[in-house]
Design a binder for these strands. Structure first.
Length: 724
DNA sequence: ATACTGCGGCTTTTT
DNA sequence: GCCGCAGTAT
């Protein structure tokens, strides 16, 4: 710490611990802040920006603040605004995608994009891919559209265009061909997907030296949140922007890296140290959230991972309560236990909204919800559809997109016959054929009118869109009026009014859309519609608003990252579920599962419950999983066993055994096979039996580690195995 | 055009 | 066991 700098800004820096202070007042060079859970990383990030500004080391234009979620970006802006008098809206603080969008709008010419370019969300992208494949007559059996989407996005996130890819096998060659065709289609239609926002920005900066020099000189301070979640392209983008002058101040936690499955590269943390000549990360290890026992459990668990940068959370708040453990006979009993405990907590005066029920996968919420409904405990569940992803909202947005740009084929196909107006599949086929043959958009094909019997209906549709466009332009409608008019004139409103099933809710959502438009503040009023549509794509909205009532919080562990609760229940701690069996087949999959467990544990402030069940309905059948190895990785001294029937001593003895040794299965019956046996499978080749589950008899599944295909779980009723 | 039925699949998810 | 999709029946 440098007193001469810190002194005049005492109020800004007051209350920071030594490590936080050294991070905040780090000199103007790159840094990696290893910020443990609950160690005050957002505070460090925002205070550093405030400090840089108030000490005159930079001005608002010199700061680039990057986050992953809109929520985090907003929080950064709000907190910064409270610290320094500065127009945070004018600053470049936002998500990777939001900032790239801003960049591409400013430089759309350099990027080769129309100034009205629209953004495809994942669902839009998938339907664009399906449409493309249909037009190219590619079998969606052999090439599942989701897999094609994954291929395209994966390559974009590695910075690779189709033209630099090559493959020996025809399958991959086809994928590359589809990738190229997809990009061409997007270019024709003036749309970009999420990954494209980043890749295109990166390419424009790479190719355009003056532009690059401008931004490199401008952004002297680049600050990144949740750095462990960056992918290769994001890292390259940051590196490019930093150039030789700029510094990167990255905050992250390798132990909370839980998004490798979507391209996050924890390795970027180590790369940052070398590429930016950082001698040692700054460690924020003092935790202000959880009781000591909870941190001790988290520390002990995460020690089982290799290759960590290393970090040990501590608190001066005392040990607190033991961690409560419950082993139920069934998933239903587990849910009943949780309900009972929650009721007890409620009686003791805990707020329901301060209690979270966490689980590994969404399917687990069902049995919990069932128990909660019966117990009349209010709950709020995160996940599922978000506002701008609802079909009625997407329909309305599609009309708005057509107003902004009628050549948007995705939008046109979505609503050309919604509500039904006599334009059937045959007519649409014709349009697609014309579009393909003449190289024009579907809108242009429809305008030319050359489509047989439904020509009149098509003309009506064209007239509808044109009248909406004309009304907006001539009558100078506000954004909200445009939205409202589109909903009404398109017939969407009438359609949902006639829908007795869930029309009412959908109409309410459409009203909400009009409200959203009314309160939307565009940067450039003349461009309000395009901006609004962009915001709708980049910020899909809350998962489910419904605030107000004091309700239990149900969510996946992933969704809980970044949140904290006084009491946390982690349910379903069973092998196969948590750690999830699918993750075992992935490289480093188990370690990511363990980090996920680490995230779950560190959400709790005062009380932590961990539970598992001896039997569980899974995929419509009973399964009899083993206790999760993660439970065995926790020091027994921290635990308090609450099971109605504690496990027998023999089983308890196995409690602290290292997880590496294969444990015996519950049922000795492995359908005649044994752990460690070599087997052969017709499709997967040679492998070794490494684990088993199921009730025995015909209900046996074996985990087999195949030489060629990795670990697979096979159901003996279907899989043909031979001894090898 | 819509409603029903059968089938497969099935982890996590932000932008 | 449940959901979503596709294909068929009305």
């Amino acid at each position: 710490m440098e007193p001469n700098v810190a002194q005049p800004h005492g109020s800004l820096l007051a209350g920071l611990n030594n490590e936080q202070l050294s991070a905040v007042t780090w000199p103007n060079k790159s840094a990696l802040v290893l910020a443990g859970a609950g160690s005050g990383k957002t505070r460090v990030l925002t205070t550093r920006i405030a400090w840089l500004l108030t000490t005159g080391q930079t001005n608002p234009a010199g700061v680039l603040g990057v986050t992953f979620t809109n929520k985090a970006a907003r929080e950064m802006q709000t907190r910064l605004a409270a610290m320094v008098p500065v127009n945070v809206r004018a600053m470049w603080i936002g998500t990777f995608h939001g900032l790239c969008n801003r960049f591409l709008r400013l430089h759309h010419r350099d990027a080769g994009l129309p100034n009205t370019f629209q953004i495809l969300d994942s669902a839009d992208q998938l339907s664009a891919i399906k449409r493309l494949m249909k037009s190219l007559d590619v079998s969606d059996e052999r090439f599942p559209p989701k897999a094609v989407q994954g291929f395209i996005n994966g390559n974009k996130e590695n910075g690779q265009r189709a033209d630099v890819l090559s493959a020996g096998d025809p399958y991959t060659r086809k994928l590359i061909e589809l990738y190229a065709a997809y990009d061409a289609q997007c270019r024709r239609e003036g749309v970009v997907d999420f990954a494209e926002l980043l890749l295109r920005s990166y390419e424009v900066l790479s190719a355009n030296q003056p532009l690059r020099a401008h931004y490199q000189a401008r952004f002297t301070h680049i600050l990144v949140d949740e750095f462990q979640d960056t992918n290769r392209l994001q890292y390259a983008w940051l590196k490019l922007l930093a150039g030789d002058i700029g510094s990167v101040f990255a905050v992250g936690d390798d132990d909370q890296s839980i998004y490798a499955f979507r391209g996050a590269e924890v390795g970027n943390m180590r790369s940052l140290l070398t590429d930016f000549a950082i001698a040692e990360p700054i460690r924020l290890e003092q935790n202000y959230r959880s009781a000591g026992n909870i941190l001790a459990a988290a520390n002990a668990l995460i020690e089982h991972n290799d290759g960590r940068l290393g970090k040990k959370l501590w608190t001066d708040a005392g040990d607190g309560e033991p961690i409560r453990l419950f082993e139920a006979h069934s998933d239903v009993e587990e849910a009943a236990f949780i309900v009972d405990e929650v009721k007890a907590l409620e009686r003791e005066g805990w707020r329901l909204s301060d209690i979270a029920l966490l689980y590994r996968s969404n399917a687990q919420s069902r049995v919990l919800e069932h128990a909660l409904v019966n117990a009349k405990l209010p709950y709020r569940i995160y996940g599922g559809l978000r506002f701008f992803e609802r079909q009625e909202v997407k329909h309305a947005l599609a009309y708005l997109r057509l107003i902004a740009n009628p050549d948007d084929d995705n939008a046109l196909l979505r609503v050309i016959n919604v509500p039904a107006r006599g334009i059937g599949a045959r007519t649409v086929e014709n349009l697609l054929a014309i579009g393909r043959e003449q190289g024009v958009s579907l809108w242009q094909a429809a305008c030319s009118g050359g489509a047989g019997r439904a020509a009149g209906k098509l003309a009506d549709f064209v007239a509808l869109i044109e009248s909406l466009r004309a009304k907006r332009d001539d009558a100078l409608l506000t954004l909200a009026e445009t939205v409202s008019l589109a909903i009404e004139h398109s017939g969407l409103k009438a359609m949902y009014e006639a829908d007795k099933k869930d029309g009412e809710e959908r109409l309410a959502n459409l009203d909400e859309l009009v409200n959203a438009a009314a309160s939307y503040m565009p940067d450039e009023p003349a461009n309000a519609l395009v901006e609004f549509l962009t915001a709708a794509a980049l910020e899909a909205g809350e998962h489910q608003a419904e605030a107000g009532e004091d309700a239990l919080q149900l969510m996946t562990v992933h969704a809980a990252k970044g949140l904290e609760f006084s009491a946390v229940f982690v349910s379903g701690l069973e092998e196969g579920l948590f750690p999830h069996e699918n993750s075992m087949a992935e490289r480093k999959g188990l370690e990511e599962e363990r980090r996920l467990m680490y995230v779950a544990i560190t959400r709790a402030r005062r009380r932590l419950y961990l539970s598992c069940a001896q039997s569980r309905m899974l995929h419509g059948r009973s399964s009899y999983p083993l206790r999760s190895r993660f439970l065995e990785e926790l020091p027994e001294a921290l635990l308090k066993f609450l099971s109605a029937k504690p496990a027998p001593r023999a089983e308890r003895a196995a409690w602290a055994q290292p997880a590496a040794t294969p444990r015996p299965t519950r049922s000795a019956n492995l359908g005649g096979w044994r752990i460690g046996q070599s087997v052969e499978h017709a499709k997967f080749g040679l492998g070794v039996v490494i684990d088993a589950e199921g009730a025995g008899g015909d209900d046996v599944r074996l985990a087999i580690n195949f030489a060629e295909h990795g670990i697979k779980w096979l159901d003996l009723r279907y899989a043909k195995l031979n001894p090898a």
